[in-house]
Simulated scan of single mutants.
Amino acid sequence: MSKEVFHSLLKRYLEGRCTEEEKKIVEQWYNVLDQEGLPAYRESEFGAIDDRLWATLSKKLDDATESRPVSFFRRRSTQLAIAASLIMGLLVAGYFVRTDHTTPEAIAREAGATLQLRQNMTVLPVSLALEDGTRVTLQPGASLQYPARFAANKREVFLTGEAFFEVNKDRERPFMVFSQDLITQVVGTSFTVKAHGAGHPSEVAVVTGKVMVSRNTEGALLRGLLTEERQVYLTPNQRAVLDLETEELTVSLVAEPVPLAAEDAPAERIVFDFVETPLKTVLHNLERAYGIAIQPEDANLYNCAFTGDLAGEDLQTRLEFICSSVGAGYTIEGTTIRITGKGCPVNP
């Protein structure tokens, strides 16, 4: 069995095209996820999971087929059984995180306790503190379901509506926010989740740190293994929006970017008072201040110089001042700001 064939088996299962024999084998190890309290994967390990799995599987399959000649159908059955048993072992060892479609009931089972419910029925934001020190600000109409005490290896909550999270850092227990459509996973950061339900696009916007966002759908674990279920990583001033028609996650800049918080900002002070400063330096300072890529459409723009005091201004105002002084404009493409214009001639 090649690596491609192995992936094909899982892909066929997700698409409902497996034989009964294949289906039973895949479901046998997949159901382990509901029975084991597994630690969440570390982001640095995720890319190597598939290679480790296949390296082990391939060796075992080669050993099995070389030990004795068997018919094609018997060999195929043996290979599938070996694949199932190996994957079960890896799951129990904690190489995968349970990212299957999660509901409040599933979170309660994981935590081994009933969930508490906090609803904001007022017209003002309401704040609450979770047992790990995480603070959550619920917007009007929002509700949060959470355990009084989190599980030993992870922290999970379920959100309906909009809330701002300031997650207390705990690398041994990743924090996961589930909503009807999205899963947001972090270690320690601050971000906003909007999950207003049917008919409204779900959104995650990051203020500090880094988060991973994926769909909260059936079979999310298998799709993660096959890299078919898209997972996006967001950094400050970025947001992910779930398109209601295509069901795809689109990453872009937040509507009003703000300077990076202390934990994400450069250690040295960034200057915004310029005197005949090369545009390359001006734009680089903006990039570092906001964590946003700013690129010129034409390299000749770097020949321009800018003079002005931009301290205390927001990003839009700063860009408008800079562009108007050099006869340029700007557009936003995804998470990149592009400066448009012909630039300036080279000084003799």
Rank of each mutant, 00 (worst) to 15 (best):
T134V: 00
F274D: 10
H284R: 15
C344T: 04
P104Y: 04
F306H: 13
R75N: 09
I87Q: 03
D51R: 10
A267S: 14
A81H: 06
P125L: 00
F72P: 15
Q180P: 06
L91P: 03
L279S: 08
A305L: 13
R223W: 09
L130C: 05
P278I: 02
L33E: 03
T235V: 14
V211P: 00
S67H: 12
A113N: 09
F6Q: 10
E320S: 14
V206H: 04
F72V: 07
W54K: 06
Q295H: 12
G219V: 06
V241S: 12
T184F: 06
F175A: 04
Y290D: 06
L226A: 08
V282G: 07
R12P: 06
T336M: 09
I87E: 05
L117P: 10
R17M: 12
T78V: 10
F175N: 04
V177L: 05
D132P: 13
I82T: 06
R75L: 03
T307G: 12
T78K: 09
P39L: 08
L283Q: 11
L128Q: 05
V254L: 06
M212D: 05
Q185S: 06
A163T: 10
I332R: 08
S8I: 08
L14S: 12
R149G: 07
L301A: 09
L279F: 12
R98Y: 04
Y30K: 00
L182W: 04
I294M: 14
L80I: 14
G341A: 10
A240D: 11
L260H: 13
T137R: 04
A55R: 15
E66Q: 14
G343V: 10
T184I: 02
